[in-house]
Computed example of a mutant assay.
Amino acid sequence: MSSLKPAWQKRDTGLTVRMIFSFAILTVLYLVFLSVLSYLGIGYIPIILIASAMILAQWYFSDKIVLWSAKAKIVSREEEKDLHEMIERIVARNNLPKPKIAIVNTAMPNAFATGRGQKSSVVAVTRGLIDILDEEELEGVIAHELTHIKNRDALVLTLASLFSTVAWYLMQFGFYGGLYGGGYGYSGRDRNGGGAMLIILLVAMLTWIVSFLIIRAISRYREFAADRGSAQMTGRPVKLANALLKISGNMKRIPNKDLREVEGLNAFFIVPALSGSTIGNLFSTHPPVEKRVQKLMEMEASMS
């Protein structure tokens, strides 16, 4: 009997190449950005240090902020025995540390993972999710979130966002400095004119826009990778596909008011909570559910 694994059980080379290519573009973009700042003589090092401190603080406290924003409550084994046992089975099979478990008391079906690393992670699920999914579908969703933790996706996206944050603050400082006439103390070659300021603003704006789009592409690739990881953990791609369809279908029944209240957490959710009017439909952090389901069903078909 052949010991070769089916293709979907192996690393997705194409997906890996796309992620590496995206990070390469991001790296080149940031190097150009810093080179332009250096050429113009702007004191960008203090700005980088300030932005780094802010983004690291955000990363350090992100789990608490996300749980507080989602109104999630950490639950003990005694409070949610079945959920704890399910997660214990998954992590035991895949040699992963057990995360903390949280419940969000809302009818909206969704789940997310947060935390700085595998040992400080939290997996949260909503009451609505537990109500609509069967046990194997729920396992697929939880395995998806555990894959995010295993791949350290929160850290990856935080680091990818670092210089995008720098560019954002440069735009803010440049705009308000120009607006009030004081500038922000750069020592460039064009001290007396507005030419250097205009170049800095344009380069910072271009850097932020392009990095914004690339980071969202990376985020979408990470979602495909987490779907694949879930299929590998459970061996049942079709169950996650069913879960995604149920979640997206039931999401349409949630009032727009409730969806807007949690849109700030869409980057964390397994399926974004998008109201019909949101600009997030154009710049989503997630691939379309239809494409995710298609890939999962292709994995399922390859098993037979």
Results as ranks from 00 to 15, higher is better:
Thr13Ala: 13
Thr13Gly: 08
Gly14Glu: 04
Gly14Cys: 04
Gly14Met: 05
Leu15Pro: 05
Leu15Met: 07
Leu15Thr: 07
Thr16Val: 11
Thr16Arg: 06
Val17Ala: 04
Val17Trp: 00
Arg18Trp: 15
Arg18Pro: 12
Met19Asn: 07
Met19Trp: 03
Met19Tyr: 02
Ile20Met: 04
Ile20Lys: 02
Ile20Val: 14
Phe21Leu: 14
Phe21Tyr: 13
Phe21Ala: 14
Ser22Arg: 00
Ser22Asp: 08
Phe23Ser: 08
Phe23Pro: 05
Ala24Ser: 14
Ile25Glu: 08
Ile25Gln: 13
Ile25Asp: 07
Ile25Phe: 14
Ile25Lys: 09
Ile25Ser: 13
Leu26Asp: 04
Leu26His: 05
Leu26Lys: 05
Leu26Trp: 02
Thr27Ala: 14
Val28Thr: 11
Val28Gln: 04
Val28Asn: 01
Val28Tyr: 10
Val28Met: 12
Val28Gly: 08
Leu29Glu: 09
Leu29Asn: 09
Leu29Arg: 03
Leu29Asp: 09
Tyr30Arg: 04
Tyr30Met: 10
Tyr30Lys: 00
Tyr30Ile: 13
Tyr30Ser: 08
Leu31Gln: 08
Leu31Phe: 14
Leu31Val: 15
Val32Glu: 03
Val32Gly: 06
Val32Ala: 09
Val32Asn: 01
Phe33Arg: 03
Phe33His: 03
Phe33Lys: 03
Leu34Asn: 02
Ser35Lys: 13
Ser35Leu: 15
Ser35Thr: 13
Val36Trp: 10
Val36Glu: 10
Val36Arg: 06
Leu37His: 00
Leu37Glu: 04
Leu37Thr: 01
Ser38Phe: 15
Ser38Pro: 03
Ser38Asp: 13
Ser38Met: 11
Tyr39Ser: 11
Leu40Glu: 05
Leu40Met: 00
Leu40Phe: 01
Gly41Asp: 02
Gly41Gln: 00
Ile42Gln: 04
Ile42Thr: 11
